[in-house]
């Protein structure tokens, strides 16, 4: 099973996996496609295996892992038709059946291989800082009506030093995801079959270009892992980590980007091309005619106008600024007025 995880905004795009700690057999984990040195047959080698026997020619083989960045690719196993169907099912489900295939026109569907930096292996390190313990202390103080209990929070800091050795699996997108609509995506892998990325493939497949350097990815990884290793609520003063075996590689993960038109707007949906699940989707918002809005908006306007007439444009300006900040993009005032009135009194989709 494969997964691209959509995470909550603000959380780092990271999947820290420990197959050992979660009790899963390592031998049942990912496989890597290679070629037998004796007969040239295709082999699948499990993660962590150092020696294997070719199932075709029975030769004993040794997997050497020299230093350097490796590049892997996961082939798409979901067809375009299946991806389109998954997106439409998801759309119908999210809109309660109100938006179906006949209400939309699909503009395009593209298979894109998204690069991720992935750091996996054993990590050893040391972290030190201050562990902050806060506790509420109740004290009795004299007051005008006798004594009263006053609560105050006391903070106690105690230095800590922790040594860590753990199996890690951390990933971060290597390309700019803003244009793919994949912000906050983390790569989590289970039993995936990776193949060596042949750079000649770029001519036949669409790949997003890696923009982040290996050094930057490594720094990000160590910084995040320091926060993982630190006790909760502590202040980290210094940390140092070493990745044993130094396995930082690029993994190309396949996703379908589907764009469709509904009404006068264009929406996009991202589908995992390894298992067909919808990672994220823009869905037309339900604009319900609010009976409360029908009453509250005129009532508030009348109240503001009755109190002091300039309050009405002031409130409108404040609401406009709020909407623009929330949308994250400038909106022309007349368009905003139409959209706002539509949201309050328009109804339908």
């Amino acid at each position: 099973m494969a997964e691209l995880l959509q995470q909550e905004p603000g959380t780092p795009a990271v999947a820290a996996d420990d197959p050992h700690q979660s009790g899963e057999a390592v031998s049942g984990a990912e496989t890597y496609g290679m070629t037998c040195a004796a007969c040239g047959a295709s082999l699948r080698i499990h993660e962590g295996e150092r020696s294997v026997r070719c199932q075709y020619c029975n030769a004993a083989l040794y997997v050497a892992a020299p230093a350097g960045v490796r590049t892997w690719i996961l082939r798409a196993s979901v067809s375009e038709g299946a991806a389109r169907l998954a997106a439409l099912h998801h759309l119908a489900e999210k809109t309660g059946g109100a938006v179906k295939a006949r209400h939309t026109s699909i503009l395009d569907l593209r298979l894109i291989y998204v690069p991720f930096w992935r750091m996996s292996g054993r990590l050893a390190g040391r972290i030190s800082g201050d562990e902050v313990i806060r506790r509420v202390v109740e004290t009795t103080v004299p007051g005008p009506d006798g004594t009263r209990v006053v609560k105050r929070t006391e903070e106690e800091r105690s230095p800590f030093t922790k040594y860590v050795c753990k199996r890690i699996d951390w990933s971060t997108p290597a390309c700019a995801l803003r244009y793919l609509g994949l912000q906050g995506i983390a790569l989590r892998t289970r039993m995936l079959a990776w193949d060596v990325f042949d750079h000649g493939m770029r001519e036949t497949i669409h790949t997003a270009l890696p923009m982040k350097t290996a050094e930057r990815a490594r720094e990000d990884g160590y910084r995040y892992l320091a926060t993982l290793a630190a006790p909760s609520g502590s202040i980290v003063r210094s940390s140092r980590f070493d990745l044993l075996g130094e396995d930082l590689s690029i993994y190309y993960f396949p996703v379908y980007i589907l764009r469709y038109r509904h009404g006068d707007r264009i929406y996009s949906t991202t589908i995992d091309a390894s298992d067909g699940h919808v990672i994220r989707a823009d869905v037309p918002e339900r604009r319900e005619r609010g009976s409360r809005a029908l009453f509250i908006v005129p009532a508030v306007t009348a109240f503001l106008a009755g109190t002091w007439l300039p309050l009405v444009p002031i409130a409108a300006a404040a609401l406009y600024i709020y909407d623009v900040v929330r949308a994250g993009a400038p909106v022309m005032p007349h368009r905003w007025i139409v959209a706002r009135l539509g949201a309050w009194f328009g109804g339908g989709r």
Binding site: R53, A60, R70
Partner: peptide, 30 residues
């Protein structure tokens, strides 16, 4: 003989002294 593919190498697991085939040991490095 070895096959080289983007940083990874698969080699015949043979004794470097006598050429005999070495036992396949999974995750072992020895």
């Amino acid at each position: 003989m070895s096959m080289k593919t983007d940083g990874l190498t698969v080699q015949r697991l043979q004794c470097q002294h006598c050429g005999a085939e070495l036992p396949v040991m999974g995750r072992s490095i020895v």
